[in-house]
């Protein structure tokens, strides 16, 4: 098949789409659904800027996922973490720890952090660092990002 009809839930909204099979989830999110909060950074799965969550907790890469393979799946982007104007604890912690500089890695970094804490709400620093691999930040040296995950961990 060259196109596939899929039903994709993004931040709680169901979208019935007919997607060309060669289009990535990242392209569909950004170009078809205007969910531009999920970023392109490298396209080859190294930088993590396109990280989104499946079922609210599993981190995947938008750039290395075919949209056609996401039929019936539920995706959360960074824009879907805020609920009724209330930020997710990870988002709050990123602000409070000043873990954001240029902000381009932030959507992916926040989604990744949510996934880390979903798997283990009380990770060690070593575990946080191990699991932040795959999300490149060129601004912060990761110091304040690690601190933000630790701060969020105290609230979850």
């Amino acid at each position: 098949m060259k196109k596939r009809s899929i039903s994709l839930t993004v931040n709680g909204t169901v979208h019935d789409l007919e997607v060309p099979v060669h289009r990535t989830l990242l392209q569909v999110l950004r170009e078809d659904l205007d969910q531009v909060e999920t970023k392109y950074g490298c396209g080859t799965g190294e930088c993590g800027a396109c990280t989104v969550l499946v079922d609210g907790e599993k981190a995947i890469l938008g750039c290395l996922t075919l949209a056609a393979s996401m039929d019936g799946k539920s995706i959360t982007t960074v824009a879907g973490l805020e609920k009724d104007g209330q930020l997710h604890p990870v988002q709050e912690a990123f602000i409070e720890e000043h873990a954001i500089q240029c902000g381009y890695c932030t959507p992916g970094m926040v989604c990744k952090s949510v996934s880390i804490l979903a798997k283990n709400p009380k990770p060690s620093e070593e575990e946080i660092r191990h699991n932040l691999e795959g999300n490149i930040c060129r601004c912060t040296g990761y110091v304040k990002i690690v601190q933000a995950v630790q701060r969020a961990s105290e609230r979850i």
Partner: peptide, 9 residues
């Protein structure tokens, strides 16, 4: 800009 960046806006 922290809030805008952390929410993807």
């Amino acid at each position: 800009d922290a809030r805008r960046k952390v929410t993807g806006h």
